[in-house]
Simulated scan of single mutants.
Amino acid sequence: MDINLVLSELQKQNKSVYKNVFNQFYKGMVLYANNFLFDQQTSEDIVQEVFIWLWENAKNIEINTSLKSYLYAMVRNRCLNYLKSIKITDDLNLIDLNSALLLEEDIDNISEDEKAIIYRQILKIVEGFPASMQQIFKLKFVENYKYNEIADELGISVNTVKTQLKRAKLKIGESIPLLLALFLHH
């Protein structure tokens, strides 16, 4: 696909070329975004925003790389901006889950790279939680809400919050002890 020809057609607002670009890159871009966000819906939203931006701003775009590189860079930047906007940083504080959610092991013996792997695994597990459990978990361990603040925010009882977090802890505990064991006993 000749980038200049495609760009020229996009600038003329050629809908069939735009649709072809969308069909060619959409799924891959959503997967790419999801590697940052671990949130399918938000990943889809961000990729759709990129395509809307492309349609609305095609006349002013100058691409010095490939169209694919350009679009993926836009997705990456929007994902990073989104993570900043919701105050998610990669400082891996989630890994200790407010001191040993998972095991009574000493996680100080795990390297930063290993913590990053475990962190990503935990986020994948959390992504599989039912929506309400996921929301409660994120409020507690990402936003550092207290039980009563979560209950107030979601209009549920403190007992429901505790029960959901207990279930979340069990699901994580069932899913990654082997992963932790590999890192803790090498």
Results as ranks from 00 to 15, higher is better:
residue 91 D to I: 03
residue 144 N to G: 02
residue 142 V to S: 08
residue 58 A to K: 09
residue 129 F to K: 10
residue 121 Q to M: 08
residue 51 F to R: 00
residue 44 E to Q: 08
residue 146 K to Y: 11
residue 67 L to N: 06
residue 124 K to E: 07
residue 107 I to F: 11
residue 140 K to N: 05
residue 100 A to Y: 14
residue 69 S to A: 12
residue 64 N to T: 13
residue 86 I to E: 02
residue 153 E to K: 13
residue 95 I to K: 00
residue 95 I to H: 08
residue 106 D to I: 07
residue 137 F to K: 00
residue 59 K to D: 15
residue 62 E to T: 07
residue 63 I to E: 04
residue 142 V to Q: 13
residue 128 G to K: 09
residue 126 V to A: 02
residue 45 D to G: 09
residue 152 D to K: 14
residue 93 N to Q: 11
residue 102 L to G: 07
residue 66 S to Q: 00
residue 123 L to H: 03
residue 151 A to H: 03
residue 57 N to A: 05
residue 91 D to E: 11
residue 86 I to R: 06
residue 72 Y to L: 04
residue 110 I to M: 11
residue 57 N to V: 06
residue 118 I to D: 01
residue 54 L to G: 03
residue 54 L to C: 06
residue 131 A to R: 15
residue 61 I to F: 11
residue 91 D to Q: 04
residue 65 T to I: 03
residue 157 S to T: 15
residue 131 A to I: 15
residue 80 L to V: 12
residue 55 W to H: 09
residue 128 G to V: 05
residue 113 D to N: 12
residue 113 D to I: 07
residue 147 Y to N: 14
residue 119 Y to V: 00
residue 92 L to E: 04
residue 146 K to P: 00
residue 143 E to N: 13
residue 142 V to D: 04
residue 138 K to R: 10
residue 48 Q to Y: 08
residue 152 D to E: 14
residue 156 I to W: 04
residue 74 M to P: 10
residue 65 T to Q: 07
residue 84 K to Y: 04
residue 62 E to K: 10
residue 52 I to E: 06
residue 145 Y to S: 04
residue 73 A to S: 14
residue 104 E to R: 15
residue 128 G to E: 09
residue 158 V to P: 05
residue 54 L to I: 03
residue 129 F to Q: 09
residue 81 N to E: 14
residue 77 N to V: 08
residue 72 Y to I: 03
residue 57 N to I: 10
residue 93 N to E: 13
residue 97 L to Q: 11
residue 50 V to W: 00
residue 120 R to K: 14
residue 117 I to P: 00
residue 110 I to P: 08
residue 74 M to V: 06
residue 61 I to M: 09
residue 136 I to C: 12
residue 88 I to R: 14
residue 153 E to Q: 10
residue 76 R to L: 06
residue 132 S to A: 13
residue 122 I to A: 07
residue 88 I to T: 15
residue 52 I to N: 00
residue 102 L to M: 10
residue 63 I to L: 05
residue 155 G to M: 11
residue 158 V to Q: 13
residue 76 R to P: 03
residue 58 A to P: 09
residue 44 E to P: 01
residue 139 L to N: 01
residue 156 I to L: 09
residue 77 N to Q: 10
